[in-house]
């Protein structure tokens, strides 16, 4: 029983963090129609900026939560204006190639700027240690990860449903030409959405920094997981992303524990199964 509870908590933590990363990827796809490989690089930059804030500037962890995602979003705006803008309206494979190239560039830039070494950031003092819950011991920081992800989720949902800016973004996503027709500055919306997606990736990087090794290539693995989430949940679907992230979280949380022999293939097995039964993902738009 305790084992199952622990696995459940693990799954939730992994899943919710993955949600924050994957939802940014999915929003960008929904509006820009670009599958953004560089998203993993932006997540990595979030973690490295956190390290810079804490280790170089000597500040506590909390300012990083504001500064790092902001810095990532600024970089993203530059990338969108200078690079991505050139491939809109072309075949999806073009944007895939360009964003993959960007991921490699970010990878190497990170190595040049911060070196090849592995870095760590300590959790803030208030979030260290463990709590005992129904007989299991669980790190305080993990609850912070879950809480932060839930807050991000709620804020994003309110933004899209309740605010004017959110409605404009949805309008631009549904019918670009119509949106332009009623006077929406679509290119600006697109830049804003890309920055928002990058902000989410950066924020996930900050939250992950105190529990993960900050090292070159840390974005490559995450982007694969984020893709699996999006494929399982459905491209362009917000609730689908949550569902996909939770499914993958459960696969990792329980698979690592109860099916260690096949835990390597489980995520791909899950993805293949979904693709076979529901090619557009669990909550993807349109009929299969």
């Amino acid at each position: 029983m305790q084992g199952i509870l622990a696995a459940l908590l693990n799954s939730l933590e992994i899943g919710l963090l993955l949600f924050v990363i994957a939802v940014g990827l999915n929003i960008v796809f929904g509006v820009l129609n670009v599958i953004n490989f560089a998203h993993g690089g932006l997540y990595m930059l979030g973690a490295y900026f956190t390290y810079t804030v804490v280790a170089y500037l000597g500040l506590p962890f909390w300012p990083a939560l504001v500064l790092a995602p902001l810095a990532v979003a600024v970089i993203a705006v530059a990338l969108e204006r200078l690079v991505l803008r050139q491939v809109y309206g072309r075949d999806v494979s073009d944007s895939l190639l360009v964003t993959f190239a960007l991921l490699l560039v970010i990878d190497d830039a990170v190595r040049v700027a911060w070196g090849s070494g592995i870095h760590v950031v300590a959790p803030p003092p208030s979030l260290r240690g463990t709590v005992d819950l129904f007989g299991i011991t669980y790190p305080v920081y993990s609850f912070f990860v879950m809480g932060a992800a839930l807050v991000a989720m709620l804020a994003l949902w309110l933004f899209f449903v309740r605010t004017r800016a959110g409605r404009i973004v949805r309008a631009a996503a549904i019918d670009r030409r119509m949106a332009e027709g009623i006077g929406i500055d679509v290119p600006r919306v697109i830049t804003g959405v890309f920055a928002l997606g990058a902000w989410m990736a950066g924020a996930a990087g900050v939250v992950a920094a105190p529990i993960r090794a900050i090292a070159p290539g840390m974005g490559d693995r995450v982007i694969i997981d984020a893709f699996i989430v999006v494929v399982i949940g459905g491209l362009g679907s917000f609730p689908g992303t949550l569902l996909g992230a939770l499914v993958l979280g459960l696969i990792y949380g329980f698979g690592g524990r109860y099916l260690p022999q096949i835990n390597l293939v489980l995520p791909y097995l899950g993805m293949a199964l979904v693709l076979l039964l529901r090619p557009r993902g669990l909550m993807g738009k349109g009929a299969a």
């Binding site: 305790q2 084992g3 622990a6 696995a7 693990n10 933590e13 992994i14 299991i136 993990s142 992950a208 993960r212 840390m218 693995r221 995450v222 990792y252 949380g253 329980f254 698979g255 690592g256 524990r257 260690p260 835990n263 390597l264």
Partner: peptide, 21 residues
């Protein structure tokens, strides 16, 4: 009961939990 997480796994908590238990 042994644990072999994939190389490059980011989250080891499930494996750590099961070994501790």
């Amino acid at each position: 009961e042994v644990a072999f997480p994939r190389f490059g796994a980011e989250d080891f908590v499930p494996f750590i939990n099961s070994v501790m238990q």
